[in-house]
């Protein structure tokens, strides 16, 4: 449905996106994640036909976004970042303008506008000037404009920006509803939201796709952190830490020693290592060395952790290069 093939884009000498490739099918809700300046918005702008890619190709249901731009654009509903709108218009007149731009037949225009107003809870402000509306309402007008023409592909740049918690929940439900028979690609910097809404996560860092898959699988591949605290003879602590360091899958151990033989250690496993096994192994080491365990716990991997890791990894790669 939506297909990106080795898409690249530079602004002057700055490479905003490098060889991005992914394919989305109807029913998928994909979340595009990345730190600021990772190339999310540039990728979205290339998909929507606002910017042409320097290299590679993007097709929407077989229509190339450059060669067959108008046909591709007709299939896309797009909510740009911070929902730019004409302040002098009303939501109703703006939606009716958009309906004409998308060439909806005259008889379908009014029902489509009313449907979009209803779905985005805009009924009570339909005839107020957009300039007088709060940010949350404006965001919903932008969303209404994106879904107005019943697009096959929905591209939402930070859709829940500026919404209050109730509206965020309702918007998520709306997105899930809409995704049933179409492609949804949304970008967000709220990781919890992506984890909750998306069936697939694409992480971009410095213009490159660093991870792509269902959130659960990505999280499983991320590092786990364990924390252990124990009391042991002071000379035993160093040996314990050395042994923990040598456990399979452990990447790093940091520790602080307190008074009376108290030691606290944080054990980080490499990505992909079995989290449950690690906790077990740590327990065995402490037991074998005769330490009295006061705390042994695991902090599960999360999307946030994965995200931070990927960003750090990208920074390391850059230093190495």
């Amino acid at each position: 449905m939506l297909d990106l093939q080795r898409v690249s884009k530079s602004y002057g000498r700055f490479r905003a996106v490098t060889s991005a490739t992914f394919r989305l099918e109807p029913g998928e809700i994909a979340g595009l994640l990345g730190p600021n300046g990772a190339g999310k918005t540039t990728t979205i702008r290339m998909i929507t036909g606002f910017l042409p890619p320097d290299q590679g190709s993007i097709t929407v249901a077989g229509n190339d976004t450059v060669l067959d731009s108008l046909a591709a654009r007709r299939l896309i509903g797009y909510l740009p970042e911070s929902a730019p709108l004409y302040p002098e218009m009303t939501p109703a007149s703006y939606l009716s303008f958009r309906a004409r731009l998308y060439k909806l037949p005259a008889a379908d225009r009014r029902p489509a506008v009313n449907r979009a107003l209803d779905s985005c809870w805009l009924g009570d402000v339909a005839n107020k000037r957009i300039g007088q509306l709060s940010k949350g309402y404006r965001q919903r007008v932008g969303l209404a404009a994106a879904i107005l023409h019943d697009p096959r592909v929905l591209i939402l740049d930070e859709p829940t920006n500026a919404l209050d918690p109730t509206q965020v929940r309702e918007t998520r439900r709306l997105i899930a509803d809409l995704a049933r028979d179409r492609v949804v690609l949304l970008s967000s910097h709220i990781l919890a939201e992506v984890e909750l809404v998306c069936s697939r996560v694409i992480v971009m860092v410095r213009g490159k796709i660093r991870a792509d898959g269902p959130p659960a699988r990505l999280i499983a591949s991320a590092a786990t952190t364990c924390r252990a605290e124990w009391v042991s003879p002071p000379d035993a602590a160093d040996a314990i830490i050395a042994e923990l360091r040598s456990l399979p899958g452990v990447r790093d151990v940091s520790s602080t020693q307190g008074q009376g033989g108290h030691t606290a250690a944080t054990i980080e496993s490499a990505a992909g290592a079995g989290a449950a096994d690690l906790l077990d192994a740590i327990g065995r080491v402490l037991h074998a060395r005769g330490a009295r365990v006061t705390l042994l716990t695991r902090r599960d991997a999360s999307l946030e952790r994965l995200f931070v890791e990927l960003v750090e990894q990208a920074a390391d790669d850059r230093e190495a290069a």
Partner: peptide
Amino acid sequence: SGTIEPLMTAP
């Protein structure tokens, strides 16, 4: 204002 984006991504 950025409204050029929804305008130039319309068909």
